[in-house]
Design a protein around this nucleic acid. Structure first.
Lengths: 258, 258
DNA sequence: AACACTGTTTCACTTATCGCAACACCCAAT
DNA sequence: ATTGGGTGTTGCGATAAGTGAAACAGTGTT
């Protein structure tokens, strides 16, 4: 039953390394920048980028001559997202939740040892959590991550908790035992909180989304700045949040059994 | 000044070919299916998929053993989309436009000789245009495409119109001269219509979005089934549509000069 | 049980890719 | 203008990386 480690290929690895150089902060990169960052020879880098360009995975700015990620990626991602009928089921509930809370709403699913945002509605306010589609965040210190951890298969959770848990802020819980207490809390209350555990000034609450088989497949969250997400406000948000999560779950065929 | 054709690489081409096999309709594929579709040897296909899996570009279903596109693509696409501050500027106007029209709203930008959806809000109705993020559509027979063509650099438009224009439906305009008349009409009225020119039963109206430099960089559209998008309804939609497009343009720094 | 089918892996071959080096280019400073 | 430090692209021979045939291991069907 041991999963055979998939065989890799040099070129695929290199492509991945190159593409991952591009971030929101550094979205336009030159050949040399990428070459240095990846350790690849500059001619190799140049040719790989050129080939990637041909396929639309990157684009080249006409003015600066720098490369950036291309729209073919959006095209492919669209296929992935379309498959998540979760997103479609969620749409209307997200809208109303966004309306009520005026904060940023996210849906995250598990992706390896992290969670990844597959749907985002941003708060209309100028100070807001800038949820980003496709963004990966850690599990142990985010509201969505805690939800996913709580309902995860025990052996998988065990494995993740045994990894070194990075302390992003002073509030980050890095002690597995305290985390287990938190999970029990999530189970009981039906929602998780991250109180500046991932980023200073950022508070979020999240609730699980179930599919028809009763598995937790995603987490729905409300994220905002600490000063707007005080305990009173959070208390107000909990019902709409859990309601929305429940409605979405029902859309997916989940039936409350008892 | 002649753009040198970018050099390609076999592996990159193959990767692209493989990834493009996956569609909404055929989202889960086995090695043999892909092998047949691409003409690649099955061992090659198997190894490439295995390597792509290692990088998260594809995933492998534990039950069926089939492959599907992976979340790393969403991750990368997120970076691309984040760069489009257009999407952020548009958000609130999209919401209200969706509210008013109850039809599917899209924002498309130019991508080579096609347009690509970078933002989609779906109609709440069950019969609706299923706009899909990242979906590519032709230019000459869609409302957004016509808008983009209308305001495109003349030589580029010339080139595209000189290509064979596929007749998707009986209504598709494939004659460059008639199309030019249509462009003049778009210029004058400030919006474009596609009346079942791309798909039977699908009608859409679109209006241009300008950036601070006064260039048309995107098109905003309302799409719905013919029976709901009759000429009266379309007339009602035009003002909200052009208003929204204008507001978004302003958000991007566009100033109406005269 | 034999069969048809899929997906993975081994292995010797060969070709696609690499890294060097040379080149072309841009700009800033002399 | 001339040099110099930087970038990005491209020939070329060497070679390592990827290939395809075939064998193997599963899975389900008749």
């Amino acid at each position: 039953m041991a999963e055979s480690l998939p065989t890799s290929m040099q070129t695929v690895q290199r492509i991945a390394t190159i593409l991952r150089c591009f971030t929101e902060a550094e979205s336009d990169l030159g050949v040399m920048q990428i070459s240095r960052q990846t350790g690849l020879h500059k001619s190799t880098t140049s040719r790989l980028l050129s080939a990637l360009r041909q396929e639309g995975f990157v684009e080249k700015s006409a003015e600066t001559g720098k490369y950036r990620l291309g729209l073919s990626l959006v095209n492919l991602a669209g296929v992935v997202l379309e498959k998540q009928n979760l997103r479609q089921a969620a749409q209307e509930y997200l809208k109303s939740l966004a309306e009520i809370t005026q904060e940023t709403i996210n849906i995250s699913i598990l992706d390896g040892d992290e969670c990844i945002n597959i749907e985002t509605v941003r708060s209309p306010k100028s100070i807001r959590y800038a949820g980003q589609l496709g963004r990966r965040t850690p599990l142990h210190c985010t509201s969505t991550g805690k939800v996913l951890l709580t309902y995860m298969r025990p052996e998988q959770r065990q494995r993740i908790l045994s990894l070194p848990l990075h302390a992003y802020t002073q509030n980050t819980i890095t002690d597995p035992i305290s985390l287990r207490v938190a999970f029990a809390d999530v189970c009981e209350k039906g929602y998780a909180i991250s109180n500046e555990e991932f980023e200073e000034g950022l508070v979020a609450v999240a609730s699980p989304i179930y599919d028809r088989s009763g598995e937790v497949i995603a987490a729905l969250s409300i994220s905002g700045p600490t000063y707007r997400m005080d305990s009173n406000t959070r208390a107000e948000f909990v019902t709409p949040l859990t309601d929305a999560a429940q409605m979405i779950s029902r859309q997916l065929g989940y039936v409350v059994s008892y």
